Amino acid sequence: MSAPMIRIETLSKRFQTGGGFLKPARAMLAVRDVSLTIAKGEVVGVVGESGCGKSTLARLVLRLLEATSGRVVLDGTDLNSLGPKALRAARRRMGMVFQDPYSSLDPRYSVADVLAEPFVVQGRPLDPAKIAGMLEAVGLPAQMAASHPHQLSGGQRQRVGIARALALRPDFVVLDEPTASLDVSIQAQIIDLLAGLRDQMGLTYLFISHDLGLVRYFCDRIVVMYLGAVVEVLPTAAATPRHPYTRALIDSGFAPDPTLRREIAPLGGEIPSPFDLPPGCAFAGRCPRVQARCRAERPELDGSAHPTACFHPL
């Protein structure tokens, strides 16, 4: 791998709720001390259950949310230190594809207006003739430029969202569960499209998903998150998991083979409240390998080539 394009350094995000007369203030660390590098041309997947902090991390990386602490560095530039004008210029190099292709598109806009929006925001000229080329790049006909989002299928809307994210020819794109709202056959088409665009344009992806099987198929490395923290980084998609939580995610996945018959053993225990995390490992209450140390100390990622935050890895 080449030198990192993106460096995420001890990034954290704290949300606070309540604080009124009837509800006392409570704080939650949605992202806890996440550090990660992404090399140019790499596809890094982030996976975990709903509520683990994946989407919050994605927005922090693009500075759509302000971090409580830590920083994000893009090719040597600390994004957290940039003022509005410099940040707008830096965002020309970054794009984002959202999970819901309908709510992320303004229903009042035509497809042509949607694709022109990044140029308007950045104050850059746009030749209307380029709209057809942008649609062609994502496999849509040029005449679709006059359509509105409600006239498109889910897969077509997501292709428009991808075209908008790539309109300014960015280097780095965050994909926030881009196939979650699509059926299986359309998911495969979108993944193939994203893979082809990566090769053609030399893109770097941060791919957010709850589907570990899809992430293992599409990504070069995999980051596993649990309640805001990274618990394992698989150095390759085929690497054998070491953390019991990662193993449980794999075992609970769907295997598309009618000859396989297996029973899925769900994890026991309860997920702790993110407002009141236990003093030790947050996964201890659900882990089949838990011991006394796990409930007293919080494990940190080790410094190996296969980082794992577990006192008793598989």
Score class of each variant (00 low, 15 high):
L11C: 04
F15A: 06
Q16K: 13
A25S: 14
V31C: 10
S35Y: 10
G48Q: 03
L60D: 00
L62M: 15
L64H: 09
L65Q: 11
G70I: 11
L74S: 05
G76K: 13
L82D: 03
K85H: 14
A86M: 15
A86V: 14
R91N: 01
R92W: 12
R93S: 09
F98Q: 01
Q99A: 13
Y109H: 09
P125E: 07
D127K: 08
G133T: 11
E136H: 07
H148N: 10
H148C: 06
G154D: 10
G155Y: 09
Q156H: 03
Q158K: 06
I162F: 08
L166W: 00
E177T: 07
P178Y: 04
L182K: 02
S185I: 04
A188N: 05
D192L: 08
L193P: 02
G196D: 06
T204F: 08
I208Y: 01
I208P: 00
L214Q: 01
F218Y: 03
V224F: 07
M225W: 05
V231T: 01
P235F: 13
T240E: 13
H243Q: 09
T246A: 09
L249K: 04
S273T: 04
C294I: 13
E300K: 09
E300A: 15
G303Y: 14
C310M: 04
P313Y: 08
